[in-house]
Simulated assay, not measured.
Amino acid sequence: MTRGWQRRFDEPIPLPRGRQLITLRDAGNYITKLPKADHDAAEWQAAMEALILVAESGGPTMFARIGIMQALNRHHVREFNPKQKEPHWGRRKLKRDE
């Protein structure tokens, strides 16, 4: 198993302008090149912490991926859609009840 900053994510992380983050080093470079206001945001700080832990301690790359994805989507507000799934309030129909 490869350890360190050269480890690859299971799937590349897509960035807003079409680029992709493939290795942990790519992700680290991307975070360090962010504008200071973004770089100092709590989400990006948490993503960088997870990235360092994965690279130096050999943890699963999924932890770093989750941190980066949360930071990338930090301004996205999920909307509640009550029409997504209608609840089934009726009684269950069993074969024996026919």
Rank of each mutant, 00 (worst) to 15 (best):
W5T: 09
R8H: 05
K95L: 13
I66Q: 08
I31G: 01
E79N: 07
W5N: 05
A47L: 01
E86P: 02
E56V: 04
D10H: 12
I22G: 02
P12H: 10
V77T: 12
Q45K: 15
G28D: 10
F9A: 08
W44G: 00
L15F: 05
N81I: 08
P35A: 06
V54M: 00
E49W: 02
W89C: 04
S57R: 10
A42H: 07
G90R: 09
P87I: 10
Q84W: 01
P16Y: 09
P82V: 11
H88W: 11
F63A: 14
A46W: 03
I13N: 04
T32V: 10
G59T: 05
A46H: 07
L51W: 00
A50M: 12
P35W: 07
A71P: 03
D40E: 15
R65W: 02
T32W: 06
Q6Y: 06
I66C: 06
R7H: 01
G67F: 04
P16F: 02
Q70L: 08
L53P: 00
K85S: 11
K36F: 05
R8Y: 01
A42D: 08
P82H: 07
M48F: 10
E79V: 14
E11R: 14
A41W: 01
W44L: 10
G90I: 03
Q6A: 14
D97Q: 14
K33R: 15
R19N: 14
L51S: 04
G58Y: 04
R91I: 06
A27D: 03
F80Y: 15
Q70H: 08
R7G: 00
P12D: 11
P14A: 12
G28L: 06
S57I: 08
M62S: 14
P60N: 12
K83F: 15
P60I: 09
E49P: 02
V77P: 01
V77S: 09
D97V: 03
M62G: 06
L21P: 03
A64G: 08
R7Y: 00
E56H: 06
L34V: 06
D40Q: 13
H88G: 12
E86Y: 10
A27I: 08
A27P: 02
E43A: 13
M48N: 15
L15D: 03
D97N: 10
R96P: 00
M62R: 14
P82K: 06
D40S: 15
I68E: 01
V77W: 02
M69T: 13
A41V: 06
N73M: 08
D26G: 01
R25C: 01
F80D: 11
N73R: 07
E11F: 11
M62T: 14
I31R: 01
L94E: 12
P35S: 12
H75C: 10
M1Q: 08
P35I: 05
I68Q: 04
I68S: 02
E43I: 03
L21A: 03
R8F: 06
P14F: 04
D38E: 15
K85Q: 13
I68Y: 01
D97C: 04
W5V: 08
